[in-house]
Design a protein around this nucleic acid. Structure first.
Length: 938
RNA sequence: UGUCCAGUAGCUCAAUGGCAGAGCACCGGCCUGAUAAGCCGGUGAUGUCAGUUCGAUUCUGACCUGGAUGACCA
């Protein structure tokens, strides 16, 4: 028997089945770097329609985690898919480099500012630390296959950035949004600084709740007020009377300036006895019973009832300070807890502050930056507020004003870095005022012009902007961009020429960065007037840094000038970067800095629980990359619907790896069978192609439309599903299976084979582009194995232009349905051991209508489509008793009685028809020694 | 405690006021000319409870679970 294997065209390719991504990817990265792929793409994209994604800067501290990977890879998929779609899509990554966390790291090593290092050296240490972090994070991002201008990222510590930031700040001042305020702000004693809203988190805290008595300064006046309200003299003028307040922050009592009652709430005057001492208290009616039981009161009687408003203005004795404080009305007073009377320290609370302003109280703050009562504070001067609690309670007890104390658990604001309780402390701070120039309203209007994806993002940010307080932008820290202002020593006003002065400062900062401000001799700028002014020592909130990226980066990199097309971050950035960027942009330019804002969810484990170190359920991206490869991680990110939580587990990674292999293998099969195909000479025109091959091209072309749509809609999980199903169902399950016979057995340069190769070539060219944004490494590997002249990288190409669709002769969807039906009928034969492969069977299909027509037009080539040795088709009316119903048609199947062709494995009656080739069928003989067969349909 | 989002087979995703689809996984089989592959067949699901409706996975409400975010001030 002649060995005919040599006469077959079996697949050949150097493209390996095993990906070995962990080893292969770094080499590919080196090659990309070597050839400056990013730069090449920029040059190739010149003049195209721009699509700009502005990178939200990660904070330069710590190793990147899964969330970072998700964010950067999503951005990368967007940028690459837009590049392939023919846009000029630059990507300039950036880092957020100033701020407290870096200071804390440096403090760990060098101690606080002024101990081992002076401020200047400390800042230098911060700078060095941040740059080191940037380097390490950059390495990890690059390893993920994220393509961008990594050699020239933007850093908020770049002198140019810092200079532009103060220029932006000047613009905000010019437009009237800056305000200097003496207001209570969240203050972290460990930071020694004010905090922004975004830096506050609420945690449970165990406090001591106390009831403190404020005695009436003039009981007769109180009685008179009650009588005026109720029409009855309450009497009992000889008894002690007062109003008890309830508080969990005893340390604020030294700053007390008033007691607030709800103006519309009902209060009662109660008389009772404690240890046989009769006395009177005013309490909210609803809270009276609870409160009086706390005080062990007996023989209680309610003397009268009135509204809080009725005793407004009555004076009370401060429990220990030498002053009297008024009763005021406060709408914010509720009946949730306490006594219905709220102690007001305008220097230590927001409501308190507002009440203080409304009632012309002193905004008194006796607490220093370090939490110690300032010199001159009666009784407690020099004590730390956390330690003074006992002393305060003791004083209250001595004064007979401590009615009750008990432990109390509540949630309380904490510093999100130190996790320590915050205090409210009135200090002079700088604010971006949301209302004095209509910033809030304009911001809300700008939100309307932005497309928010998912759309609930709009409501979220609207609610936040509508409800937020003024933005406290000053920090009393070392590592940050200075607030470059001069304050008049007498009037407290900023220098009238501030914008111009800031420009002069910015010019110095262009080269020297923030040190230019700290080194500045005010005389150089202000001349003789310098003596009248004081330089501000505060730094800016780092949210100002990142919030001004849209302005600062564009000054040196005009290709990303605002407004940009897209911001893409985690959904937590509605309160963070999206908002800070919006506010600065509206403050400077009256418009949003972005057209679209896309958010993604957070990573969770397989049970849907968030990943955290304490739960021990974190998965490190570095680990995945170094074992499975970056493409596997990228595929997971693409395959997951990022609008909700994104869950990751060992099983999920396994599934992702499996589907990766399937796609890779499909590509490998295409490449293996494109062996020897030179598109320049071998590519057939659609007219010359076998009908099935034209179907494959048409199918791929239709799919491409869907895939591009999905990319355009940022629905990458749809891209993945479409791609994977195409590989499995259309290609593996049908087309590639069917054309194997033709590829292998017909002549290498024959029309039937070239036709199939032409189709596969089109499919491969398109598919490598579909894959490229997601499986960047693998796509590049495929690209390099594809035949034909091509550029250095798939990313230098644009979406594949399919040849114009030709009308098909066969309704292939019908044929696919019949194929499934035949497979069902073949299964029992196989189970019975009558046949093994489908080529051992012959079938007759009985059908009517369109499916009959489809099969009839295939004629003799039906058997190739069904992958059986013989296939006949007859009208339904002729079906015999033995026919089996499968789907809509009836099938008769049996094992073929014919001999097997050793070459093509079909069972044919014409084996040996050509005498010189006794072991092969006539078709094979023709292909081996004759003119070669021709195919029209399959 | 408020608001928002999500909950569809073991996993990843679909869909619809009218029999809930796909792929993977799993089970069974085939092939050995994609072979640490490939092909065929099969099993399997709407978080819970009510309501509206002829009919609800879809609409409404409550609850549960998870996530995000805000308020919690005295």
């Amino acid at each position: 028997m002649t060995d005919y294997k040599d006469t077959l065209n079996l697949p050949r390719t150097a493209f390996p089945m095993r990906a070995n991504l962990a080893q292969r990817e770094p080499k590919m990265l080196a090659a990309w770097q070597e050839q400056d792929l990013y730069g090449q793409i920029r040059r190739a994209s010149e003049g195209r329609k721009p699509f700009v994604l502005l990178d939200g800067p990660p904070y330069a501290n710590g190793k990147i985690h899964l969330g970072h990977a998700v964010n950067k890879v999503l951005k990368d998929i967007v940028v690459k898919s837009r590049t392939l779609a023919g846009f000029d899509a630059p990507y300039i990554p950036g880092w957020d480099c100033h701020g407290l966390p870096i200071e804390l790291q440096v403090e760990k090593k060098h101690g606080k500012v002024g101990r081992k290092l002076d401020a200047r050296a400390f800042r230098q240490a911060c700078r060095e630390y941040a740059l080191k972090q940037v380097d390490s994070q950059r390495e990890d991002f690059v390893r993920l296959g994220v393509l961008g201008d990594w050699s020239r990222p933007y850093l908020t510590l770049d002198p140019g950035f810092e200079a532009n930031q103060v220029r932006g700040f000047a613009r905000i001042i010019e437009r009237g949004h800056l305000q200097r305020g003496y207001k209570p702000v969240h203050w972290c004693l460990d930071c020694g600084s004010a905090l922004a809203e975004a830096e506050v988190e609420y945690r449970d805290k165990a406090s001591v709740a106390i009831d403190v008595l404020f005695t009436a300064a003039d009981p007769a006046a109180l009685n008179a007020a009650v009588q005026a309200a109720t029409g009855q003299d309450p009497g009992g003028a000889e008894l002690p009377v007062g109003i008890p307040i309830w508080t969990t922050t005893a340390w604020t009592l030294p700053a007390n300036q008033a007691v607030a009652l709800g103006p519309e709430l009902e209060y009662g005057l109660y008389e009772f006895a404690v240890e046989d001492q009769r006395q009177r208290l005013i309490l909210a009616v609803e809270l009276a019973a609870d409160s009086l039981s706390r005080y062990d009161a007996r023989n209680i009687s309610q003397i009268s009832v009135f509204k809080g408003e009725d005793i407004k203005g009555i004076l009370l004795n401060h429990p220990f300070a030498e002053r009297q404080v008024p009763v005021i009305a406060g709408d914010f007073v509720t009946l949730e807890a306490g006594t219905g009377a709220v102690h007001i320290a305008p220097g230590h609370g927001e409501d308190d502050f507002a009440a203080g302003v409304a009632n012309e109280l002193e905004i008194y703050n006796p607490v220093g930056a370090d939490g110690v009562y300032l010199p001159g504070t009666p009784l407690f001067e020099g004590q730390h507020i956390n330690k003074a609690a006992d002393a305060i309670l003791e004083v209250l007890t001595q004064q007979g004003c401590l009615l009750n104390r008990e432990p109390y658990h509540h949630s309380y604001p904490h510093c999100w870095r130190h996790r320590t309780p915050l205090i409210f402390r009135a200090t002079p701070q700088w604010f971006v005022n949301l209302d004095q120039q209509g910033l809030r309203q304009q911001a809300l209007a700008s939100i309307e012009s932005v497309r928010w994806i998912p759309d609930w993002g709009r409501e979220r940010i609207e609610g936040m902007v509508a409800g937020r307080p003024d933005w406290c932008i000053s920090r009393q820290r070392t590592w940050g961009v200075p607030i470059p202002l001069f304050i008049h020593k007498v009037t407290g006003d900023i220098h009238p020429d501030s914008p111009a002065l800031i420009e002069q400062i910015a010019e110095r900062m262009d080269s020297e960065g923030i040190e230019a401000w700290f080194d500045l001799d005010p005389v150089d700028l202000l001349g003789e007037a310098a003596a009248d002014y004081e330089a501000v020592k505060d730094t800016m909130d780092v949210w100002m840094d990142s919030g001004m990226v849209h302005f600062c980066v564009a000054q040196s990199r005009p290709e990303v000038a605002a407004p940009v097309d897209l911001y893409l971050e985690g959904s937590d950035q509605h309160r963070g970067w999206f908002q800070s960027s919006l506010l600065t942009s509206v403050a400077m330019f009256d418009r949003a800095p972005y057209r679209e804002v896309l958010t993604h969810g957070f990573t969770v484990d397989e049970k849907g629980h968030k990943m955290s170190k304490s739960l021990g359920n974190t998965i490190e991206p570095q680990k995945i990359v170094n074992s499975l490869g970056a493409d596997i991680l990228r595929l997971w990110i693409a395959a997951t619907d990022y609008r909700a939580e994104m869950s990751l587990s060992e099983e999920i990674l396994k599934r992702v790896t499996d589907s990766y292999r399937r796609m890779r293998n499909t590509a490998r099969f295409l490449l293996g069978n494109l062996h020897g195909f030179e598109p320049d000479s071998d590519l057939l025109q659609p007219d010359d192609m076998v009908d099935l091959d034209r179907w494959a091209v048409a199918r791929a072309s239709r799919l491409q439309a869907e895939i591009l749509q999905a990319y355009g809609d940022y629905e990458f999980h749809r891209v993945y599903q479409l791609l994977h199903n195409f590989c499995v169902v259309d290609m593996g399950g049908f087309y590639l299976d069917v054309i194997k016979d033709r590829l292998y057995t017909t002549g290498a340069d024959s029309q039937p084979r070239r036709s199939a190769q032409t189709a596969m070539y089109h499919v491969a060219e398109a598919m490598v582009r579909w894959l490229a944004p997601i499986l960047s490494f693998t796509a590049e590997e495929i690209w390099q194995s594809l035949p034909g002249e091509r550029g250095a990288s798939v990313l230098l190409a644009t979406d594949y232009p399919f040849p114009a669709a030709e009308k098909l002769s066969i309704d292939w969807e019908q044929i696919i349905g019949i194929r499934d039906a035949v497979a069902q009928v073949l299964e029992p034969l196989r189970a019975a051991g009558d046949i093994g492969s489908g080529l051992e069977a012959e079938v007759t299909v009985y059908a009517e209508g369109t499916s009959l027509a489809a099969m009839q037009s295939l004629g003799d080539e039906l058997r190739f489509a069904l992958i059986t040795s013989a296939a006949a088709v007859l009208p339904l009316s002729e079906r015999p008793e033995s026919a089996v119903l499968a789907g809509e048609q009836w099938v008769v199947a049996s094992a073929s009685a014919d001999a097997k062709c050793v070459r093509c494995w079909h069972r044919r009656p014409d084996i040996g028809a050509v005498a010189s080739h006794p072991d092969i069928c006539a078709r094979c003989a023709d292909n081996v020694a004759g003119a070669g067969e021709s195919r029209q349909f399959a």
